[in-house]
Amino acid sequence: MSPSFTIVHPGTGSNATPVTPKNVPVSGGPVSPTAEAVGAQFPGVISRTVVSRGETTIIVDGARVHDVILWLHDDAQQSYDYLSDVTAVEHRDLSLPLEVVWHLRSLRYRRFIRVKVLIAKGAPLEVPSVMDIYKGADWLERECYDMFGVKFAGHPDLRRILMWEQYKEGFPLRKDFPLRGRFSRSEQLKNALAANPEARYSMEELSIADAFEELPLDMRRRLSEGEKVGE
């Protein structure tokens, strides 16, 4: 009668009791077995394996990263079913490549791995989306696109999320973006007021109300004054 869920307990795949890591070395240390498994499954995909602060990072080929993450998610011996984070890193040394970072967790084996793709200077900022594997990647990828301009190929709805859709100044977390923004404070204020993101509806949203007369009065007024709606 009552369709209650079966309780899922993490850590069923290992007998080890998790403990707080102590005296973690700054670099070096044991490599996660996942790195070797990925290397065996996808020969030549891992260009480098780095262990920093006890956490293993595998740097993989950008064209194959979707396959690697899909395998990590599906394979019963890996079972990386939890996507913690998707983000990007740009270094102060601008000759270094921009990095896109996935933090994956395996709840069954209580493992953690960081998958990285390096995008060389001048190359298009594009990596495959993992939203078909993890639904939780939706907003994380949108945020990464918003802040860094990294395009996630295959994401169904890659829009800005924290900045408004008409934001013109670029990608705030890139190192060439000045801390105070690109324009003067007065220009920024003028642009922000003109954008009026609180009252803006995208075309998708407007299609819900299919007649112009259905729109709120103030919106009809603004639209008739020539204000454009979102993309």
Binding site: F5, V8, P10, P18, V19, D81, Y134, G136, L140
Partner: peptide, 28 residues
């Protein structure tokens, strides 16, 4: 439970869905 993990939910949200994932226990 499957949806909650796939959506990356955490904290009381994922535990209410029957997944006993708590960082204090699993990655202390």
């Amino acid at each position: 439970p499957v949806e909650a993990v796939n959506y990356g939910l955490s904290g009381p949200m994922v535990r209410a869905s029957g997944v006993a994932y708590d960082v204090r226990k699993d990655f202390p």
